[in-house]
């Protein structure tokens, strides 16, 4: 089985001298294709920092990170942009949709940066919105959508470029239970379709959806528990998909 993520001795420190904070104190981790991993831990455990490094939004102080076998630390700015665009879909706790821009235009963005033609772009963006159940809200601006709907638009945006890896930083942190269920249903479905998911949460019921739960404390891995096996990409695809 091929590793999507392979990190070794990842260290991230902030500040200098006595004020140095070790956000990550040597994390080694391998995540295989098709896995669904929940990272848990109290605030300050370093889980967000780990997530940002995995999403190529931040760089580690030391340690190596191989994404699909490619050493990310050797990439330049332009190549990193390409990795963020093609390989990774990122869902933020704060949604991070571009304000005053319609849902479908938000979802189209990664495709536009990938150089996809406008007509193809629109079709794929609408398909992605349909998948998260918001096909009828395509022309709404973010401020006309509920929190749960905004987060589902953000998930559609993360998925539209069909990345191998979906990273979600507390995707349900700002949502009520109904919206949480909606978003988790979408994540379950795309994992069943073979997409690798890593998400951060501190809710046990969210972690319950994952196949594997990793707990961090003070920048180190405390426990790594497999709840369910990684399914074969082919089997158990729902008949309606």
């Amino acid at each position: 089985m091929k590793a999507v993520i392979d990190v070794r001795d990842l260290v991230k420190t902030y500040g200098e001298g006595e004020a140095t904070v070790h956000a990550l104190a040597g994390v080694s981790l391998t995540i295989n294709r098709g896995d669904y991993v929940a990272i848990m831990g109290s605030s300050g455990s370093g889980k967000s920092t780990l997530m940002h490094i995995l999403g190529c939004l931040d760089i580690p102080t030391s340690g190596s990170y191989l994404l699909d076998g490619v050493d990310v630390s050797r990439l330049n700015d332009r190549q990193l942009a390409l990795v963020r665009n093609r390989r990774i879909g990122f869902v933020f706790q704060a949604f991070n949709l571009i304000p005053r821009t319609s849902a479908v235009a938000n979802v189209e963005l990664p495709l536009a940066y990938a150089g996809v033609k406008a007509s193809v772009r629109r079709k794929r963006a609408l398909a992605a919105l349909d998948m998260v159940g918001l096909g009828n809200r395509a022309d709404h601006d973010p401020n006309q959508l509920s929190g749960g709907q905004q987060q589902r638009v953000a998930v559609a945006r993360a998925l539209v470029s069909e990345p191998a890896l979906l990273l979600a930083d507390e995707p349900t942190g700002n949502l009520d239970s109904k919206s949480t269920a909606d978003v988790l249903a979408v994540l379950d479905q795309i994992n069943r379709e073979g997409r690798t998911i890593v998400l951060i949460t501190h809710e046990d019921e969210v972690a319950h959806h994952a196949r594997r739960v990793i707990r961090l404390k003070d920048g180190e891995i405390m426990s790594d528990v497999r709840q369910r096996a990684i399914q074969d990409e082919r089997d158990e695809v729902p008949s309606w998909a």
Binding site: L57, R78, A81, R84, N85, N96, P99, L109, Y113
Partner: peptide, 16 residues
């Protein structure tokens, strides 16, 4: 700046 951050996270090259 935040919007620029979002665009970068989505894979926008600096030049664009």
């Amino acid at each position: 700046t935040r919007e620029i951050g979002i665009r970068k996270a989505l894979g926008a090259p600096r030049r664009v």
